[in-house]
Design a protein around this nucleic acid. Structure first.
Lengths: 159, 159
DNA sequence: AAGGTGTCTTACGTTTACGTCAACGTAAGG
DNA sequence: CCTTACGTTGACGTAAACGTAAGACACCTT
């Protein structure tokens, strides 16, 4: 990202708050090592104040996206790719079309994942109520005498 | 493959179909090694016909759940744990309560994940339409002059 | 001056989830 | 009998994502 949001410390005095590595680590529940690792992998590029890392607003936002990406099960490489979706400088149509293809692929993935999550949630809630039922009615028997949800057998397929 | 697709015409005329490892591998887009690995890890326990693995209906359903779990970003260990949710024999109340706790934890996780997916989908779709807009109106400028979505900065936190 | 706190780099260790041979068994078909 | 297809068990390799010291600054406080 060229001169995206350069923000030199001298002029202008807005929300220029910066963060130390320890600060961010605590906030996001990460270790220092982990944050440095993201930098090694090119996901972050904080400024330096002497030798220490200084994180601006923007870096913190990227870190938030990284965390979410991780929760969604993406690899760092994938996350890196989609971080680029956010800060492409829209100047070259060629690259934008490329980004759009990537974005759409990712959207398709996530829609699939959305189905997965919802389906799993339905099943787990079902299990939960069944257990509750069994416990309150003190009845004996099986949750399912037939193995994992019949539904799953008809539904799922490959990735 | 011994009696994989053999389908003996003698007794039974129901859903007693069994599967060979290669068959399942192809169906789910996995390698043989992967499926054997799941067995090594105790996620599957297929019958044997001689030396070959024979997968019943139930094993196949478990495999489907494993695949879904993977897509959702769970580790094999976690998946193993929640596979147990499906085939607990409901006989001991103690264990059922335990399972219920696990189920509810997982439900909470997934609800969080659901939010993540939906949020990310919104953002990506937004990016997509913005790109389309930029491309059709041939205008120049930035998608966001401020780095990753301002929203992300206020929203996200730890896992 | 000594100690504490926070940071840095370097570098090897670890865990997870498989990949990748190697060497062999078994059954069907030409 | 030979080939081909599919299966088996080791056992070592590897990529990703960090963990875990070790040793060195730098600043602040007592």
């Amino acid at each position: 990202m060229p001169g995206a949001t350069v923000l030199r410390a001298d002029q202008l005095g807005e929300d220029e708050r910066t963060y130390g590595i320890g600060e961010l680590a605590e906030e996001f529940g990460l270790t220092l090592r982990t944050i440095r690792h993201y930098e090694e992998e090119g996901l972050l590029l904080p400024a330096r104040e002497g030798t220490s890392r200084v994180y601006a607003h923007r870096d913190r936002a990227r870190l938030a996206l990284i965390c979410r990406g991780k929760r969604l099960g993406f690899s760092l490489a994938e996350i890196k790719e989609f971080l680029n979706l956010y800060d492409t400088d829209g100047s070259r149509a060629e690259q934008m079309r490329y980004m759009q293809r990537i974005a759409r692929r990712r959207i398709a993935d996530l829609e699939r994942q959305l189905q997965d999550v919802q389906q799993t949630l339905r099943e787990l809630r079902d299990i939960d109520t069944q257990i509750t039922h069994h416990l309150t009615h003190a009845r004996h028997g099986h949750l399912n005498q037939d193995g994992p949800t019949e539904a799953a057998e008809r539904e799922d397929q490959q990735s």
